[in-house]
């Protein structure tokens, strides 16, 4: 970028997928372009650049946000989560991703990161949404391939799986605690 005379840049601190970045950004740089360009997180896709399609949805401090409508300079101190944060380094898919896989909730995959991040926010709020709740929450995200119903199924299924996982973890923890307590008594 040495050939450009950059406009006055703004210093921000941004945490993306748990990694802290100290950045100098142009005032007009959109979060979507910062993520895809400077931070090389190309999993976030840009579909329309005007907030209609939702493909670029990421979480900003936990809230589903269109990264094409936010300037990076607005986000000093914020925590951003993108699709790259979901799967494990060993290739284990996040339960939401796994549910999309099992329910054929994607075809070309271009809108999928936005759908997944929107689903993350929804499932944080509503553990086991019904189909109407999913359609309400993700209704602003366009998909041109699937016809949506498998996306709705995927998100509902993810809610059930994640709830079951939480319950079984809770049960295991409770059991472990009980055992320890018994052991202590003995």
């Amino acid at each position: 970028m040495g050939e450009t005379t950059a406009p006055e840049k703004i210093r921000i601190g941004l945490t993306v997928n748990d990694v802290r970045h100290d950045l100098l950004v142009e005032p007009r740089t959109l979060l979507a372009d910062l993520l895809r360009g400077d931070l090389e997180l190309t999993g976030t896709h840009i579909g329309c650049e005007q907030g209609v399609c939702g493909a670029c949805t990421v979480l900003v401090d936990g809230t589903a946000t269109r990264s094409c409508l936010v300037f990076a300079a607005q986000l000093d101190g914020a925590a951003v989560r993108t699709v790259e944060s979901l799967a494990g380094a060993d290739g284990t898919l996040h339960p939401i991703q796994q549910a999309f896989h099992e329910n054929h909730g994607l075809q070309c995959g271009f809108c999928t990161p936005g759908m997944l991040m929107g689903a993350c926010e929804l499932l944080e709020r509503t553990a086991e949404p019904d189909p109407d709740e999913v359609r309400e929450a993700l209704g602003g995200n366009l998909c041109r391939c699937t016809g949506y119903q498998n996306i709705v199924r995927s998100v509902c299924a993810a809610g059930r799986t994640m709830t079951a996982d939480r319950n079984s973890t809770a049960t295991t923890t409770a059991t472990t605690t009980a055992t320890t307590t018994n052991g202590a008594q003995a």
Binding site: T42, G43, H45, I46, A87, F100, H101, C108, G109
Partner: peptide
């Protein structure tokens, strides 16, 4: 199950914009 899915789901497929 679709073989194409994991890379697409993980944001690891390379589209031309990437």
């Amino acid at each position: 199950l679709r073989k194409e899915d994991p890379k697409l789901l993980a944001g690891r497929a390379v589209y031309v914009g990437d």
